[in-house]
Computed example of a mutant assay.
Amino acid sequence: MKHFLTGLLACLFFCSVACAQSVWVGVKGGVSIPNLKSSSSNPVSRGWSSIQGPYFGVVAAYKLSNFFYLQTELNYASQGGKKSGLQAISSKPYTSFFPPGTDVPKYFYAVFSNEVHLNYLELPVLIKLEYALNNQFGLFVNGGPYVGYLLSAKNLSSGKSNVYFDEQLTQPALPAPADFAATTNVINDINRFNVGVQGGLGVSLKLKNDSKFFLTAGGNYGFRPIQKDEANGQSNTGAATVILGYMLGF
């Protein structure tokens, strides 16, 4: 027991000394350029393009060796996408409006615009390799997994169109065009948790007061399809990011 306590105290001492000399903490902020990626043949998942949103958080890096760091972050991350034109709509929520025995197609089709805005709290754990070019500038690359928790999810639609039974828009389902202008809270249709990978490449600039600026270009990708119901599509989150940050060393 004595040897165990001695070893434990020695370990805590050396860890505290190492951390006191090789910990960096800071803040970062920038832009996220997300795009929903289709992960199935479901027509609802197709046709998304990129939008822009904020990306910011706090960061801590622990020096493991001359070149390697363990970096943890807590980020507010924008995800989502937009599309415009011909779109598929799941008929599942509307089947009760048809008489029993009616052959209702799996999807309806209409022409309108759509944006999905998803905001996550993400916790990445990264390994960072940093190489000093000189006393001021360094190059680094980082990568690792993250866990995300959905904070909000909204669907913004606009435009007027009839709703059709077929993709060729030859069989109208309504006597007149419908107005698609709406902002809908869809958080109950989206999985709250996601896991994925994050990575980046960047440069750092050391200052005289044991601090530094850094600029990172990177991206992330979520492994879990976001929709709870496959009828609403099967899409994965993914985004390119450009980040400027400041860290202080201790």
Rank of each mutant, 00 (worst) to 15 (best):
F112P: 03
H3S: 13
Q87S: 06
S90E: 04
F193M: 15
G218P: 00
K28H: 13
K63H: 08
S16R: 07
N209R: 09
T95N: 03
L12N: 10
V111W: 10
N35D: 08
A110N: 03
I243M: 13
G101L: 12
V104L: 05
N191T: 01
G199Q: 04
K206D: 05
F13K: 11
K228V: 15
Y55E: 14
V31A: 15
P175Q: 07
V125F: 03
K154D: 13
K206M: 01
S78L: 05
F14V: 15
E230D: 15
K212Y: 11
F214G: 06
S161L: 06
K83V: 09
G81P: 03
V141Y: 07
F180T: 01
R46S: 15
L169E: 03
T183H: 09
G80D: 07
S161H: 13
F165I: 00
K206R: 13
F4S: 14
L248D: 00
Q79M: 07
V197N: 01
D103Y: 11
V163K: 10
F137M: 11
S235L: 14
L86H: 06
S65D: 10
Q234N: 14
L215P: 02
G218S: 04
S40F: 04
T6E: 15
N220Y: 13
V141T: 10
S38C: 11
G81S: 05
Q198I: 00
L207C: 08
A178T: 05
A231W: 07
V111C: 11
S49D: 13
G53C: 09
F140P: 01
P124L: 10
L156G: 04
